[in-house]
Computed example of a mutant assay.
Amino acid sequence: MKADPAPLRAPATTPATGWALSVGRLGAVVGPSLGGRILASGLDLKWSFYIFAAIGALAALAAVRVPPGGGRPRTRSHVPPAVLLRPDSAV
């Protein structure tokens, strides 16, 4: 028996993946340039640590505030579980 995952796919999966990848790429571009500017500014290493710690704390706060499931109500499939398992499908 093979399970059919098509009715279980969420329509918001693709845009959410796109947003996550774009934010990750933005961080990959801005992070090294901002870090280089902070280190090249001539601040004491203690102040550089405080700036990096504040940026990390803001990122952790943003990550914690993401609601489970992306904040959108999940739609349930109206297909009964018995239909999801098709004994005639090839493995």
Rank of each mutant, 00 (worst) to 15 (best):
residue 66 V to A: 05
residue 41 S to H: 06
residue 77 S to P: 01
residue 15 P to W: 08
residue 70 G to D: 00
residue 56 G to R: 03
residue 31 G to V: 04
residue 73 P to D: 05
residue 58 L to Y: 01
residue 2 K to S: 09
residue 6 A to S: 07
residue 8 L to Y: 02
residue 66 V to K: 13
residue 69 G to K: 02
residue 24 G to I: 00
residue 42 G to R: 00
residue 58 L to W: 08
residue 59 A to H: 04
residue 70 G to L: 00
residue 84 L to C: 01
residue 66 V to H: 10
residue 31 G to A: 07
residue 47 W to C: 10
residue 86 R to D: 15
residue 22 S to Q: 14
residue 45 L to H: 14
residue 76 R to L: 11
residue 61 L to F: 02
residue 4 D to L: 09
residue 37 R to G: 15
residue 43 L to S: 10
residue 47 W to T: 15
residue 8 L to V: 02
residue 77 S to Q: 03
residue 48 S to L: 10
residue 56 G to N: 03
residue 7 P to Q: 02
residue 73 P to Q: 00
residue 86 R to E: 04
residue 8 L to W: 02
residue 88 D to A: 11
residue 30 V to P: 00
residue 34 L to C: 07
residue 86 R to T: 06
residue 48 S to I: 14
residue 25 R to P: 00
residue 78 H to D: 15
residue 32 P to M: 01
residue 66 V to P: 00
residue 15 P to D: 04
residue 79 V to C: 01
residue 4 D to M: 11
residue 13 T to F: 12
residue 39 L to A: 06
residue 78 H to K: 11
residue 26 L to E: 14
residue 82 A to F: 08
residue 76 R to Q: 13
residue 25 R to A: 15
residue 70 G to W: 01
residue 22 S to V: 13
residue 14 T to I: 12
residue 17 T to F: 07
residue 41 S to T: 12
residue 52 F to G: 06
residue 9 R to E: 14
residue 75 T to K: 06
residue 62 A to Y: 06
residue 12 A to R: 11
residue 46 K to T: 15
residue 85 L to F: 05
residue 53 A to R: 12
residue 76 R to D: 10
residue 21 L to S: 10
residue 62 A to F: 15
residue 49 F to A: 14
residue 2 K to F: 06
residue 70 G to C: 01
residue 86 R to S: 09
residue 4 D to N: 15
residue 16 A to F: 10
residue 88 D to K: 04
residue 70 G to V: 01
residue 7 P to H: 05
residue 62 A to G: 08
residue 58 L to F: 11
residue 1 M to H: 03
residue 21 L to Y: 12
residue 28 A to S: 07
residue 90 A to E: 05
residue 17 T to Y: 10
residue 78 H to M: 14
residue 40 A to Y: 03
residue 60 A to L: 09
residue 66 V to C: 08
residue 36 G to C: 11
residue 67 P to K: 04
residue 89 S to G: 14
residue 81 P to N: 00
residue 71 G to L: 01
residue 48 S to C: 14
residue 89 S to C: 13
residue 23 V to F: 13
residue 51 I to S: 12
residue 16 A to G: 06
residue 6 A to I: 06
residue 42 G to P: 02
residue 26 L to A: 15
residue 73 P to H: 02
residue 36 G to D: 08
residue 85 L to M: 09
residue 32 P to E: 05
residue 85 L to Y: 10
residue 57 A to G: 01
residue 16 A to N: 07
residue 29 V to D: 13
residue 67 P to C: 02
residue 20 A to Q: 13
residue 5 P to S: 09
residue 9 R to V: 15
residue 46 K to S: 15
residue 1 M to P: 07
residue 77 S to V: 01
residue 72 R to E: 05
residue 31 G to H: 07
residue 18 G to Q: 11
residue 44 D to R: 05
residue 80 P to C: 00
residue 22 S to D: 09
residue 12 A to M: 09
residue 61 L to H: 00
residue 64 V to E: 04
residue 28 A to I: 00
residue 15 P to C: 08
residue 44 D to M: 00
residue 73 P to W: 02
residue 54 A to N: 02
residue 13 T to V: 14
residue 52 F to S: 08
residue 46 K to Y: 13
residue 59 A to L: 05
residue 34 L to S: 08
residue 31 G to D: 01
residue 39 L to E: 12
residue 84 L to P: 03
